[in-house]
């Protein structure tokens, strides 16, 4: 079993937290992991992506081959489209629909949604709004993660365990908010 995931977003939106949780859950299974991160200049509000590769066998390349990704998991809708060359024909796009507008020429969001809906498998939802509704505003990224785990073959329990382990030093309240966000995300899938 292998899962190649492109995580996408804008610098500062928290995609590395998603990677950490998925990576933790994969390691608990005894899987291998490679995770190419973006550090440096683009973190200043530029587009960022992370290649996350999980497998029960050896993984060679740190980068995902174009046309091979099982999923594009994005916290911003236009950013999801930027990595289409990587997506396999039967791959999934799972993305937040809330635009992050920090450039003057951001396209019309409706056009972005139309492009996303042209792909075979996709899930598009306002994760910012959902996180707000459940009073876990800062867990938007975990809502997005929640929507993805079924398609990645992880159980709620596995991910919840990893969330608890990773956030435990930040206190009970933060763990709870993230677990709530996870559930809300799962409900979307």
């Amino acid at each position: 079993m292998k899962k190649d995931i492109i995580l996408a977003g804008v610098g500062g939106q928290g995609i590395l937290t998603i990677a950490t949780i998925l990576g933790h859950a994969a390691l608990n299974r005894g899987w291998q992991l490679k995770q190419a991160e973006v550090h440096g200049m683009s973190q200043r509000g530029g587009d960022v992506q992370s290649h996350l590769r999980l497998s029960d066998k050896d993984i060679h390349s740190d980068l995902i081959t174009m046309g091979d990704a099982d999923m594009i998991l994005s916290v911003e809708p236009m950013e999801a489209l930027r990595y289409l060359p990587y997506l396999a024909a039967d791959g999934w796009i799972i993305t937040n629909s809330k635009p992050f507008v920090n450039i003057p020429n951001y396209p019309n969001p409706e056009d972005v949604y139309t492009e996303i809906s042209k792909t075979t498998n996709h899930l598009l939802f306002d994760a910012d709004q959902i996180a707000k509704d459940i009073k876990a505003t800062r867990s938007m990224n975990i809502v997005v993660l929640g929507a993805a785990i079924k398609h990645l073959g992880f159980s709620e329990q596995e991910i919840a365990d990893s969330i608890s382990a990773i956030f435990s030093r930040k206190g009970e309240a933060i763990v709870e908010a993230n677990l709530k966000a996870l559930k809300a995300g799962i409900a979307l899938s």
């Binding site: 804008v10 610098g11 200049m41 683009s42 973190q43 200043r44 509000g45 530029g46 587009d47 390349s61 980068l63 081959t65 174009m66 046309g67 091979d68 990704a69 236009m78 950013e79 489209l81 930027r82 289409l84 060359p85 990587y86 997506l87 396999a88 024909a89 791959g91 920090n102 450039i103 020429n105 951001y106 396209p107 019309n108 056009d111 972005v112 492009e115 792909t119």
Partner: peptide
Amino acid sequence: PNKVAKALGLPSKYGKDVPEIVAGRPP
């Protein structure tokens, strides 16, 4: 991996082109 495959004359995989509406997002 794609560049290496192409250099060896192997079929190179590719998803879909990035839609034209996608704007650059410089830092």
